[in-house]
Nucleic acid binder design. Structure first.
Lengths: 163, 163
DNA sequence: ACCAAATACTTGACGCTACAAGTATTAGCC
DNA sequence: GGCTAATACTTGTAGCGTCAAGTATTTGGT
């Protein structure tokens, strides 16, 4: 336990603003999706990952990795999505321990219907207030932070993580 | 419902990275604080706000605003903190409808003890991987996003929002 | 071939947050 | 002054995420 290096005024200001965005952004996305599509952001994200996977199918473990969820959480969420007919479970033929989550036709319809409103919200809240240079800076900075938070780049820059 | 303006490749990359940080950062802060201090990030933040307020006291409504919480959520959290002896409730003398949340001596001790570890985590995950120019860019970009998410700047740049 | 360990989930219980409804007090209006 | 509306919370309920434990299947020795 060495001496604490406190934040400078500039660092503190940037940090406070980042943390404010981290607190506020999820709620904004959540509200819009819930209101317009009846989906939580995590549900939307899960369906989106499946929609881009080969055969619209992923093993639970792979899906959990891409959505940054625990297997337990994903299992509960997939159960709910299954009850609503948006996803279907299949036992994996190659490895009977494993479960494949498959996007149903209804699930595809739901995610396709939800996407435009979601993208519009993303544009309004994040992208459109920024200049092209800002976007480049944001990309660079978030990349540096992710090198620490997610060194193996499991969540981003892996296949099938489009939003 | 006009045509959707989809994200360009650059925008999409920056967005995906931002959302990854938004998903991963809270968990990182949460784990460290819980492990080292037995506090959730929200509890820590609540105590920190109180610690910087005059008389270490704030009305519930004001505290809720600064922590970006609903009154209901804050009420539950303060109840728990009260049970642990970190916060005390007082009826406001001027307005008997209102409740003041007051940081106790034990609460002060807890937040002071938790701060160094928290700041170290913030440094390691966010500040230190960035150059000074990055920090300035981050500050500017988050400011622009906050103009949309929090137009009245209630959460940031209001008094008593240091972290 | 067999058995222990590892893997891939699933399930149940508990804690936290949002939402809805309720209580107490104050402010505004006539 | 008295009545209504607004304010400032508090409390109960339901839903979602986490953690711990359990089940089923496969892998890796021996």
């Amino acid at each position: 336990m060495t001496d604490t290096r406190w934040l400078t005024a500039d660092e503190l200001r940037a940090w406070k603003r980042l943390i404010a965005v981290v607190e506020l952004l999820p709620g904004t996305l959540e509200s819009q999706l819930q209101r317009d599509s009846g989906l939580s952001h995590f549900e939307y994200f899960t369906l989106a990952m499946l929609s881009e996977a080969p055969d619209r199918t992923l093993r639970m473990t792979a899906l959990a990795t891409h959505t940054n969820a625990t297997l337990a959480r994903l299992s509960h969420v997939v159960s709910r999505l299954e009850k609503r007919g948006l996803v279907r479970r299949e036992v994996c033929a190659q490895d009977r321990r494993a479960t494949n989550a498959v996007l149903t036709a209804a699930g595809w319809t739901a995610v396709v219907a939800a996407a435009p409103g979601h993208v519009r919200t993303v544009r309004e809240t994040v992208i459109d207030p920024l200049t092209a240079a800002d976007v480049a800076d944001l990309d660079r900075i978030m990349g540096r932070i992710l090198d620490v938070l997610d060194p193996t780049h499991v969540m981003v820059d892996a296949p099938g993580t489009d939003d």
